[in-house]
Amino acid sequence: MPKNVKIPIGEPPTGDPPTNGQHGVDPADWVDQYGDALLAFALGRVRKREVAEDLVQDTLLAAWVNRERFDGRAKFATWLVSILRRKIADHYRRDARTLTASSLEENAPDPFTPKGMWRRAPWKWKADPAQLAEEAEFQRVATSCIEELPPHFRQAFQLRDLGDASPKEISVILNISPENLAVRLHRARVLLRQCLESKYFGLAARTASPHRGSS
């Protein structure tokens, strides 16, 4: 029987191959052996906990159904993660489909003029990231600004800036080219910056006016 395997978060785990395909294997044991590590991997790539848990369950079910296909060349845990990766990609594909149906906002207002200049100049932000993060109002605004991003931009942003996945991995998950990913991330960050400025820093500047006159 395999030993308890610790899998580092965000990396393909390693571990002893289990006695797959043999009689007497109880797949329920996999939940204890690999469940937490798979969940950690999934949580680095999807934000919602219930979704991550569902993906782990789907992965283990698929692994059991397809256990004959595990050939023992890779570590069993690595094989599980490869299944989980596919489940994550499927999830984003489904997510994108429902989102495009529900929103026509892919053409969010362009913050640049046709000549590529800023429509509205960025303001000066006076803030410390660590302090900001502790502030309830900033947390609220940040969460809502991220939610408001057009779906394709939001997916790219959350995977890249809030998750564990590399740009290459994200391109695979979202099934887009690295160039396309770079464009989406740029748009997401520009829109997010604008949203934070108008909903958070704008108000902060108005209430604490002494800092404004610098530009």
Binding site: K124, W125, P129, L132, A142, D161, V190, L196
Partner: peptide, 20 residues
């Protein structure tokens, strides 16, 4: 300003995500 804000925004939002 944008370049500085980008880095700050990333830092702050990552912290928020970690806190949550």
């Amino acid at each position: 300003k944008f370049a500085a804000q980008l880095a700050m925004m990333r830092d702050a939002l990552q912290r928020v995500a970690n806190l949550q």
